[in-house]
């Protein structure tokens, strides 16, 4: 997961990004996932797409450099006044795509490899991290379910926020407050429940814990992840293949190196080699 996140943050070339997105998508669709969770990840995806759009619009309005001028906003408008360029639009979209990749990578690899299991492969000093991560992760589906419940409740109460973008924004706002309240209520119960089950007991720190053995599946997964990330980092450091992409000043097609393309396909390995 760390490997895919590193790759996602290093790569700014839209062609590579799309390949990586494909690889992650394959893993995502191949992963078994419960029905209630796919809805949560669905909203994750929507959030990512929304981010691309926001980033695109924002960049188009703020950045006025670039030579392919699409239209002009009069100069009297503060900040947004100036040229609207295709270069700025592409730059914004690529930036948003980076964000979506990060999120989707996180989602897909979380479905495939449980964070807790991953941490348990590590030396014991890292163990308490496993507990915290596990508890955090169980919060994601719970929060998704709570949000759905609140939206239903608002329908039941007949609260109508009207249609269109304004209505959607209002509704999202109205969901947020109860979501925080229910989240806090759940957090209190969780804390009570954890303490009641000896969380924070001093005994835990003093005893040696056994590690779980590495399996072939684990090794393959780790191997490909390491290989892929080292290739990408190497490329980025030595500069033998450009990972970046610069749409300014004039829009050009991004460079493509087949080797990098192949390396990125390695990220689909968890889909064909489930552990």
């Amino acid at each position: 997961m760390a490997s895919v996140l590193a790759a996602a943050s290093l790569i700014k070339n839209p062609l590579y990004q799309i390949i990586l997105l494909g690889a992650v998508g394959v893993v995502f669709t191949a992963s078994p996932r419960p029905a209630d969770q796919s809805r949560v990840w669905g909203s994750f995806l929507k959030l990512g797409l929304a981010f691309i759009l926001i980033s695109l619009i924002y960049n188009v309005l703020i950045s006025h450099t670039g030579e392919t001028i699409l239209l002009k906003i009069p100069q009297w408008a503060p900040i947004i006044g100036g040229n609207v360029t295709a270069e700025a639009a592409v730059f914004g979209a690529v930036f948003g795509l980076t964000f979506l990749l990060g999120m989707l990578g996180f989602a897909a690899f979380n479905l495939q490899v449980r964070a807790v299991e991953l941490v348990r492969l590590l030396p014991r000093a890292w163990r308490s991290a496993a507990t915290v991560i596990s508890v955090t992760f169980s919060f994601i589906p719970a929060t998704g379910a709570a949000a759905a419940e609140i939206q239903e409740a608002q329908l039941i109460r007949g609260l109508d926020y009207g249609g269109g973008v304004a209505g959607r924004v209002k509704r999202a706002g109205a969901v947020l407050t109860p979501l925080v309240v229910t989240g806090l209520e759940k957090a209190i119960t969780t804390a009570e429940s954890m303490e009641s089950r000896a969380y924070g007991n001093p005994a835990a720190a003093s005893v040696r814990l056994e590690r779980e053995p590495w399996t072939a599946g684990n090794l393959v997964l780790l191997g490909t992840a390491l290989a892929a990330v080292s290739a990408i980092v190497a490329a980025s450091v030595t500069g033998w293949a450009s990972l970046g992409y610069q749409p300014y000043p004039v829009l050009t097609a991004p460079a493509f190196n087949p080797l990098i393309g192949f390396v990125l396909c390695l990220y689909a390995v968890p889909a064909v080699w489930p552990n």
Partner: peptide
Amino acid sequence: AQLVTETVEEEIAFGPRNLGLGGV
């Protein structure tokens, strides 16, 4: 609301782990 982990076994192991017991 009391479930704090992702899986059934993980949940049941939560207490004993906190007691510092060995894996077995």
